[in-house]
Design a protein around this nucleic acid. Structure first.
Lengths: 193, 193
DNA sequence: CGCGACGTTGATTTGCCTCAACGATTGTGG
DNA sequence: CCACAATCGTTGAGGCAAATCAACGTCGCG
């Protein structure tokens, strides 16, 4: 059952009772997305949050120079969220694109508001999730300032081995904020050491 | 009264009753910090969160190369939080240093836990605060990837004029992730246009 | 006054980008 | 199942943004 992964993910943050967690899960619906398809595109308002149970997504932005800049990848056990657009219901800057055939558990904005009212402990759940994410983003920015591209690449390989192994180098370069040509040169130099 | 700023800051996120907001404020104590002093240093466990009512702080990290890397500035109406260390009660990577004689409203870790229990709506408050912060950090990382140092400098000046005007260029360079020499060159080139 | 932190400037180096070309791999339609 | 296109990874030449190192004048402060 694909809800099992979601339940475990939630329980890692807040210890809900079995009844509560079933209640929470009942707000989510399964959605399948084929490789290459988009769940969200720039300019549209994000009305849902998702939890990936199968496959892999990239969350990216196309900047004014036309470069694809990848915020993060979401494989199994990751959340698929545009915090800004979902919270403020403003047009999104982001794209959610499936890099493989994927399955996502989806909760709609209106349902999430109902869930907050119905089960106030869900506030704590998303408070903790947001704080963990916040700490991670702060550390990532520091790494971008302190580390060279090569060091960031190696950190990525070590930290997310099962994401790195299933995506192209172009995607990794987009995540690291470098060109794919330069990533290729980093790799060839690493082999010589 | 220095609590007024805190009350307004909180009410911008959750509409508490007067009684509730007084209750929340009663958990905070005033602390004065002189220019140059530290409220948190690397290696210590962060047992508090703060809200700045007067003065200005820099929140920074010293990396392995000895560079001071500034995560953000906290002047009046800003929160002073090491999310990671406070949440996990692990040794902090950060320094909180006053750049001016300052005043902070402090809430201790144990008291904050009590506040969550006593007034569950506070969960929503910090959920919303964390999500707003998260969205802001994601945008900042994107700017670091897409914009040149000059463009980031101008963005900083436009976005935080009353922080930029009261700190040294060295601090701004540390925030932008560039050397202060290069920032100086950016400024001299800007004047010629 | 004298010291330390600051801002500035120049010379040099380096990390990364841009552009272009090429073979290898993957995907797709006939 | 093949042919072709598209995408991918690689490599090289050249250029630019930013770092490094060093020197210097200025300012605030003890």
């Amino acid at each position: 059952m694909s809800y099992q992964l979601l339940k475990e993910n939630i329980r890692r943050n807040v210890n809900f009772s079995d009844m509560q967690i079933d209640e929470i899960c009942s707000f989510f619906n399964t959605k399948t997305v084929k490789k290459g398809e988009y769940l969200l595109t720039q300019g549209s308002i994000c009305k849902f949050e998702g939890f990936v149970t199968k496959g892999c997504f990239r969350i990216f932005i196309i900047d004014t120079k036309g470069n694809e800049n990848i915020l993060y990848f979401a494989a199994e056990d990751w959340w698929l969220i545009d915090t800004d657009s979902f919270m403020n219901q403003t047009p999104s800057d982001l794209y959610f694109q499936a890099l493989e055939d994927s399955e996502v558990l989806i909760i709609q904005k209106a349902d999430k508001e109902r869930l907050y009212d119905q089960l106030p402990l869900v506030e704590k759940l998303f408070r903790i999730m947001s704080q963990k994410a916040l700490a991670a983003w702060q550390k990532r920015l520091i790494r971008n300032h302190c580390l060279t591209a090569k060091e960031r690449y190696q950190y990525f390989l070590n930290t997310y081995p099962n994401i790195a192994s299933r995506i192209t180098d172009r995607q990794i370069a987009g995540y690291l904020g470098i060109t794919h040509e330069f990533l290729s040169k980093i790799k060839s130099k690493s082999l010589k050491n």
